[in-house]
């Protein structure tokens, strides 16, 4: 592995950096796929031939990205994600903490959890439509479910696995039960909760797309499905990419939040 100098300043340094082998390889691989895609039809490449070529997609995107429909879709999907995800945290974290700290509540609730949890949130869609008065609520409910189980299990796990020596030290030093909760158990559980959030936000995006496709009348997921139904495949693909991008940005936001709320976990 050739070691390119990265600390040289100026143009020479920048060129050295750009020419780093890894970067080069990354550019080459993506570039190759792009080229193959663009020329799939004339070249007769299997899967990519059925898709509109890359140039058409880029062209369609210039139209789509200025349309109201697209950005309204974004706004609505983000709203639903935010509502469902936040609700899942606000309800799931306290329940998880309570269950971890009170054996009786855990024994009572856990069987119910274990029966309901394996049902994929997507399978809940029909019931959700029947149960909630508006489509909006039924979509948010699906998002909520997706994130809820994750945060519940992660919170219970984190709170149950507080190092016994931390508890003992805290007891000996004179902690009241209140101190134990707010100063020991809760901070010790935060890393697990953050993990739950990171996984949960990804699932939330999956759920919102599915729910919108079926139950919603607006949103990126709905737009995706609509594009398919009217055979606007290029638009369809752009929606896919947008949703992927949205998921990525959400994950980064959660990661930032995790870093803020658990500063001791940062790599040093």
């Amino acid at each position: 592995m050739v070691d390119f100098p990265t600390r040289r300043r100026g143009i020479a340094g920048w060129i050295s950096y750009s020419l780093r082998l890894e970067l080069l390889l990354g550019v080459i691989s993506i570039g190759t796929i792009g080229l193959l895609w663009e020329f799939a039809r004339p070249l007769g490449i299997p899967v990519f031939s059925n898709l509109p070529p890359l140039s058409e997609i880029i062209q369609t995107s210039t139209q789509l990205l200025v349309s109201d429909q697209y950005w309204d879709g974004w706004a609505l999907s983000v709203q639903r994600i935010t509502a469902g995800f936040l609700l899942a945290q606000l309800i799931g974290v306290p329940i998880g903490l309570f269950m971890a700290m009170h054996r009786a509540s855990f024994e009572t609730a856990f069987p119910i959890v274990e029966i309901l949890r394996p049902i994929p949130p997507v399978a809940w869609i029909p019931i959700s439509i029947l149960f909630w008065p508006t489509r909006e609520l039924s979509v948010i409910f699906i998002v909520f479910l997706g994130a809820f189980w994750i945060v519940l299990l992660n919170t219970i796990g984190g709170a149950s696995n507080v190092d016994p020596n931390h508890r003992r030290a805290a007891l000996s030093l004179g902690s009241t039960p209140r101190d134990m909760f707010w100063r020991i158990i809760l901070p010790a559980t935060i890393p697990s909760i953050v993990t739950g959030m990171a996984v949960g936000i990804g699932i939330a995006w999956e759920m919102v797309v599915a729910a919108e496709m079926v139950a919603g009348r607006t949103g990126l997921g709905y737009l995706l499905w609509q594009s398919f139904e009217v055979n606007a495949i290029a638009q369809c693909i752009i929606c896919m990419i947008s949703i992927g991008f949205a998921g990525f940005v959400s994950s980064q936001i959660v990661r930032l939040f995790g870093s803020y709320v658990a500063p001791w976990q940062r790599q040093r």
Binding site: H166, R168, A169, A170, I184, A262, W264
Partner: peptide, 11 residues
Amino acid sequence: VLFQETSLFPW
């Protein structure tokens, strides 16, 4: 007690 494994509160 000073335990075998460090039990400083990491947070």
